[in-house]
Design a protein around this nucleic acid. Structure first.
Lengths: 140, 140
DNA sequence: TGACAAATGCAATCAAGTTGCATTAACTAT
DNA sequence: ATAGTTAATGCAACTTGATTGCATTTGTCA
């Protein structure tokens, strides 16, 4: 896992500690292809025989978000999900039946739209959230 | 308020009761140009000297959502917001500093993208959520 | 190895949202 | 207008996601 050591080196060089929790959590995010909730993350830590308090999990997520190592996404479930922030800008397609999540990369994306928003409303877009909900192949 | 009586008539014809709570809440949604959280809705009811239990507020929102009278939107605050579902399909631009919310209508929208998603992944998009975050004119 | 501060665990707390159950009130039929 | 029915409500307890203060532990570096 080349990327893990890179991330850790980077954090260390910025003066942050490489705790067991931090290494485990970044490792899990790197391996997961789908966004994880705080709970799912904690369960995965447990599955790996590493017990961490939920406060620590939330604090670590918050830290990693601040460091731009993970990004927040949400599917309107009443909770937040997080995914590693290394991959290209993409969106999600979420099956409303089996809840499977997949990534989708849209070419050209929304840059034109964001330009129009600025022309129209003088509103400077810095970020957007876009998720698609529907039925996957199996569930149609 | 023509639309209010229309909505109420429609509900009544479908066999639902026109309770004081229901009338008040639909009225508030019709008057509010911004999506409301359950709490804000309840506070607005209180402001109008009408005290309602939070369980009732949640149940009524759930009912109105089921009736397609309101729709759910979210700005990643860890809570859900709701807005009246009469207006054309639109999205939101949310200022990350002053939190002001405005509507934006995108011509052509994401139909092309959704078509591409089906071609690419055989995933049938039924719905999407798209919000823009950035700085409004005042806050830039 | 020891000192310092970051990170952690624990427990309490908060906010959003849900549920069971007894009571109230909107509507219907008479 | 009245009585019966049942949807809607209030209350209280509860669940889940998330946050915080504080004492303790642990990673780092001199």
């Amino acid at each position: 896992m080349v990327e893990l050591t890179q991330i850790l080196q980077n954090l260390k060089s910025r003066g942050y500690r490489l705790t067991k929790t931090r290494k485990q959590i970044i490792g899990i995010f790197l391996e997961s292809r789908v966004p994880l909730s705080a709970q799912e993350l904690r369960l995965e830590l447990q599955r790996r025989n590493y017990q961490v308090d939920k406060a620590t999990v939330y604090r670590e997520i918050s830290f990693l978000k601040g460091q731009k190592i993970v990004r927040e996404v949400q599917f309107g479930e009443g909770k937040k999900r997080f995914e590693i922030n290394l991959t290209d800008h993409h969106h999600h397609i979420v099956c409303i039946r089996c809840e499977k999540v997949d990534d989708i990369v849209l070419e050209n994306d929304l840059r034109d739209q964001e330009k129009k928003i600025f022309e129209l409303k003088k509103f400077k877009v810095l970020n957007h959230s876009l998720e698609f909900f529907g039925l996957c192949t199996k569930c149609q």
